[in-house]
Structure formats: C-alpha cells, structure tokens
Amino acid sequence: MKNRLKVLRAERDWNQQDLANALGVSRQSVNAIETGKYDPSLPLAFRIADLFALPIEAIFLRD
C-alpha cells in the first residue's frame, strides 16, 4: 500500500527517528512503512493519523 508518510514527515522537518519516537515504534518500522515493505496494523495506522491530524485515507492510499 502506498503512503504519504515520508512527505508528511519531511513537511515537519522530522527524521525517521523523530517520527518513530513520536509513535513509540522502532526506526526500522517507520522505514519499512515508508518504503512500502510493511503495512501497519489498524491501531498503528490510527496512531499515525492522530499524530498528523489527518484521516487515515489522507495518509495511506489505495494501490
């Protein structure tokens, strides 16, 4: 699944570790999600959406 995580992170001038810390996950997790290697669970997707104050469908896009 494609996502806009990298763009949203860059807009806030965060690195992967900053985002990982904010979400309470590892930097590897953030990297895997950004590169499309891993689709997060629904609870983690909601945490990401809450952090960016956006709906999930504005971050994760249908293939």
Binding site: V25, S29, Y38
Partner: peptide
Amino acid sequence: MEDEYLRL
C-alpha cells in the same frame, strides 16, 4: 515485543 514490525 510491542513493536509490531520487529515482531513480524
């Protein structure tokens, strides 16, 4: 493990 990606 709480990190779901590392657990996977």
